[in-house]
């Protein structure tokens, strides 16, 4: 009888116990209202920087000034001058996708297999059709930190340059600054 009562109580209480195991994990959209803002560079910062760069680049018309459009672009080095380990593809890939979608530029192959096949094709057909890039895209991400008391402001500067390797000049430059400010908690764990 005691066992029966105990089992009944356990059955009645089980939803309470199981509820405790549930999480509020759910899908979110990048850049939505719920986004977590930390002092670290995050996916939203890359999206903002890429958005600003593409907008300014397309608006400038610099990429339209090529003899055979669409322009051929080669992604060069993005120097990371922050104290964080970052994957700069999060920035450059967004830019190259957006430029490809715009129809204004194509990016040079970076896949070694595809490059090998291209060279093989050129050799077999006895032709040199490899087109040199019209532009290269290079840049730098810089982090600066200012502190006053417990307030900390971190600014990330995303600097990008579109270089014309034939003329040896930079035909476009853009910079997007993203600042984040917050207070350090009085007690840290």
């Amino acid at each position: 009888m005691k066992n029966k009562t105990f089992l009944s109580l356990m059955a009645a209480a089980s939803p309470v116990f199981f509820t405790g195991c549930a999480t509020d994990m759910h899908y979110v959209q990048t850049g939505d209202k719920e986004q977590i803002i930390s002092s670290q560079i995050n996916i939203q910062d890359y999206a903002d920087a890429a958005n600003a760069a593409v907008k300014e680049l397309l608006d400038s018309g610099a990429i339209d000034k090529v003899a055979n459009p669409p322009a051929l672009l080669e992604l060069s080095r993005i120097i990371n001058n922050t104290g964080q380990q970052v994957d700069t593809d999060l920035l450059t890939k967004k830019i190259s996708i957006a430029l490809l979608q715009s129809g204004k530029a194509q990016t040079k192959i970076v896949d070694s297999k595809a490059t090998g096949l291209q060279q093989e094709n050129e050799f077999l057909n006895d032709q040199k059709s490899t087109r040199l890039p019209d532009f290269t895209l290079s840049g730098k991400i810089i982090e600066t930190v200012d502190r006053a008391g417990s307030t900390r402001r971190t600014t990330y500067s995303f600097q990008l340059s579109l270089n014309d390797p034939k003329a040896g000049v930079q035909v476009w430059e853009g910079e997007k600054e993203i600042g984040k400010q917050g207070k350090r908690p009085a007690v840290s764990f």
Binding site: T30, Q44, A47, N51, V54, K94, A98, Q101
Partner: peptide
């Protein structure tokens, strides 16, 4: 559009 995320 790859760049259609919200802009703060």
């Amino acid at each position: 559009n790859i760049l259609s995320a919200n802009v703060p």
